[in-house]
């Protein structure tokens, strides 16, 4: 008979402070601090509520895929984002992504596969167990973070959808709904919505490619791409498309948003590469966030963001300064 023994340090569930209560405490504290600050400097504060009703996730750690570098604090990961559907300011997504509703959510699967159709998010994820992977994220703007994602390997989901032999690429789309995404209503946006991304099939099937549904053990906050987003850590951050509503298997290389916008600046591959500069700035170094005020936290950028061992073989024989 298997007797489950509980180590002495495990608290019974009943003694753990329920999440709702400690979140409320936190909310109360930030509220108190905020009101004090507002009294001192009126009109300065715009409260951004990040973690009110996020649900905790069950997952196992995947140390084999995780870096042990210092993680970027949750507050920074959720307050400093590029999610242009909500504005181009780094704080805009935290401020406005609450206008997007992520439940219920469905993903349209189409193209060269045996299992096309409209999937409720739960059905797409049901067959898989969540794992936590701590990845580096390198933005094309020369800053980077270390983020503990929770999710499933992209390869597992793709296998479930059974792409056929004509599927050479997989294409993704973000939600396009100007009612929920305020910057999609902007008159002077040069992005042609919806936001589009894509991977070559072998890139998508690589063990590192990941579909995240959470970070720091909880469901993704909207500004980080809720409820489901791609994470491809050896590529610049813009490849890791957020709030996915469409997955299409294609024979032809799909057009991706940044490539459509400025083909001389952003390519389809967008592999992190210190040897190929962005035309407007250098990619040799990056600021690992949080960065200091007087001493910026500069580190050298590594080729493939340090994941060369897992992915370099995908690009054997390719001229990466041409296929950037």
């Amino acid at each position: 008979m298997l007797i489950k023994q509980r180590p002495s340090w495990v608290l019974p569930e009943s003694e753990v402070t329920p999440k709702s209560i400690y979140l409320n405490r936190r909310k109360f504290m930030t509220g108190a601090i905020a009101s004090a600050a507002t009294l001192a400097v009126p009109g300065l504060l715009h409260a951004s509520d990040t973690s009110s009703d996020l649900k905790a996730l069950d997952y196992r750690a995947a140390p084999e895929y995780s870096t042990d570098e210092k993680k970027t604090p949750l507050d920074d990961v959720t307050a400093y984002n590029n999610f242009y559907e909500f504005g181009t300011g780094k704080g805009d997504p935290a401020k406005y992504a609450g206008e997007m509703s992520v439940d219920p959510w469905s993903v349209e699967v189409e193209g060269e596969c045996e299992r096309p159709g409209r999937y409720a998010l739960e059905d797409l994820l049901k067959p898989h167990d969540y794992e936590e992977r701590i990845y580096r994220l390198r933005c094309v703007e020369a800053w980077s973070m270390v983020i503990p994602w929770v999710g499933v390997p992209l390869a597992a989901v793709i296998k479930q959808l059974q792409p056929n032999s004509r599927a050479k690429y997989v294409y993704f789309e973000t939600l396009h709904d100007p009612k929920q995404m305020r910057a999609q209503r902007s008159l002077f946006s040069t992005v042609e919505w919806p936001y589009r991304e894509g991977l070559r099939m072998d890139e998508a099937m690589n063990e590192l490619s990941f579909l995240a549904v959470g970070l720091y053990g909880e469901a993704l906050p909207n500004q980080n791409g809720a409820p489901i987003r791609l994470v491809v850590p050896w590529k610049y951050g813009f490849k890791s498309i957020k709030s996915i509503v469409r997955i299409r298997f294609t024979e032809e290389q799909p057009k991706t948003s940044w490539e459509m916008l400025a083909p001389s600046e952003y390519g389809f591959y967008a592999n992190v590469n210190p040897e190929v500069d962005h035309p407007r700035w250098s990619q040799k170094r990056e600021r690992r966030l949080p960065s200091g005020i007087l001493r910026p936290n500069w580190i050298e950028t590594s080729k493939f963001n340090g994941y060369g061992e897992q992915v370099a073989q995908l690009y054997k024989g390719m001229d990466l300064s041409r296929f950037y």
Binding site: A37, V41, L44, T72, A79, K90, L289, P290, S291, I293
Partner: peptide, 20 residues
């Protein structure tokens, strides 16, 4: 003044050099 108070209050964000 707003920049200084944001720095002191910890509201300047994780990439202060860029923001400032």
């Amino acid at each position: 003044g707003f920049i200084v108070t944001d720095v002191l209050a910890g509201r300047i964000g994780p990439d202060p050099g860029q923001a400032i």
